[in-house]
Amino acid sequence: MSVRRIILFGVALALLAQPALAQKQYGPGTSDTEIKVGQTIAYSGPASAYGVLGKVEAAYFKWLNDTKGGINGRKVTFISRDDGYSPPKAVENVRSLVEGDEVALIFGVLGTPLNMAIRPYLNKQGVPQLFPAAGSSALNDPAHFPWTMGWQPILRDEAKFYAKNLLAHNPKPKIAVLYQNDDFGKDLLNGLKEGLGEDADKMIVSAQNFQSTDPTIDSQMVILQNSGADSLFLFTYAKQAAQAITKMYDLNWKPETYLHLGAASVGATFRPAGLDKSKGIMTAGFMKDVTDPRWANDPDVKTWTEWMKTNMPGTDINDSLTVAGYSVAQTLEQVLRQCGDNLTRENIMKQAANLRDFHLGLLLPDSRINTSPTDYRVVTYMQLQRFNGANWNDVK
């Protein structure tokens, strides 16, 4: 009898435990029907060209809700607010989103200075800061800031990638650098110096900076040309990149030019500057150029093209920012799908740090995403590309 009682007792305990094991777990901003996602981004101000990221992401989540019922049966409520590319405004927006709207996470914030401004608050509050549109290495520091994870290639890695390419065919270059005077620009400049090695200070004959709010960078470009440099690095966003390209043309200055990948947009940079004026500029490509004929029959590009026609009519598909916004939104979708019915903030970060051999259709074919609790880098594969006046050619 004692053995029988023990068995029955064990069965009873197992039955009692089953509902607990199947119980759904929710944190702020999540429920049986909803996942709240917050964003602050520049729809106005000096970086307003990048506001298209937020518009594409909003369209993607709406499409998910309308066609697929959201993610795991939950609709995504996407709350995106304008910060004018102002760090204080970004902090204000984020506090409102977390404390007022009670979002589950903050997603896709533009710019290194803004992300650095909101990072302390979000890590103190234990709120995921996922996939910012910024490449600072400081946004990939899980040991000290476990709630913050970047998306695009790290700025320092990008700059070292350019340095390696330049030194491979020009061992003694004379380098000019135009950089934004903030964490974003300085991170790229420091990465360039690391990539150039011990002779970096001799190779860099002139480095000129600017503020994001400066109306023009013409005077800096004249100084850089007068330095005698044969190589130029543009560590800028789209507005200043377009100005620099225009000024180079006016000065008839034709240095070997490398442009920060975040500004290497046909729609946001090259078209305003002039497509012919932009010929020859190089960047670290990591996404398919959807306007390039070589991808014309690519299934993922075809799917994206149809999606854009239906969900973003009238938007310039030459603007690579549309591809980025679509791909970043897909990455967040994958993370939230992996969460299943455990939508606590802790599990959202856990799943973000456990992406395994994940492939996004609009990244270059050899790109695979693998994250871990100790390595938050998401997109790491880069291919040097040169603009030919219409689209990009790989540089072998």
Results as ranks from 00 to 15, higher is better:
K174F: 02
F161L: 06
L189G: 00
P128K: 08
K36Q: 14
T371V: 02
G389N: 11
S206I: 05
T236C: 07
D199M: 03
N209L: 06
A42L: 07
A163Y: 02
N123F: 06
I245R: 10
K164Q: 13
N370P: 02
T67E: 15
V395C: 14
A12M: 14
R5T: 10
A47N: 03
F210A: 06
D199S: 10
N140A: 09
K186L: 14
G267H: 05
A238I: 00
D66W: 13
K160G: 11
P128A: 07
E346R: 15
S227Y: 10
P120Q: 02
P120S: 03
R156Q: 15
N342A: 07
K89D: 09
A273D: 01
S206R: 15
N226W: 10
S96G: 14
T269P: 03
A176Y: 00
K279M: 13
I71T: 05
P293V: 04
G285M: 14
P173R: 08
Y258C: 09
C339D: 03
F145R: 06
E333R: 15
G185Q: 07
G314V: 13
G73A: 12
T213C: 08
G135D: 00
D250G: 02
G325N: 12
V177R: 05
E256W: 12
V328H: 09
V301D: 06
Y258E: 06
D357R: 13
K288Q: 04
E102Y: 12
Y249A: 15
V323E: 06
A168V: 01
D66R: 05
R345K: 15
K202L: 03
E34R: 14
I118W: 10
E194F: 00
S231M: 08
L232P: 04
R356P: 02
G191H: 02
D214Q: 11
D214P: 03
N93P: 00
L343C: 09
P146C: 04
D230V: 02
K62M: 11
E57M: 13
V177M: 07
L53I: 07
D101S: 14
N170C: 09
Q330D: 15
N123C: 01
Q23C: 04
P87A: 11
S86W: 03
K302F: 02
N318W: 04
V378N: 00
L8I: 12
M287E: 08
V37D: 08
A90K: 01
L259T: 04
D157K: 13
G274A: 04
L15H: 05
G285V: 07
M312E: 08
T322I: 12
G100D: 08
C339F: 02
P373N: 11
A159K: 06
A59V: 00
T380S: 14
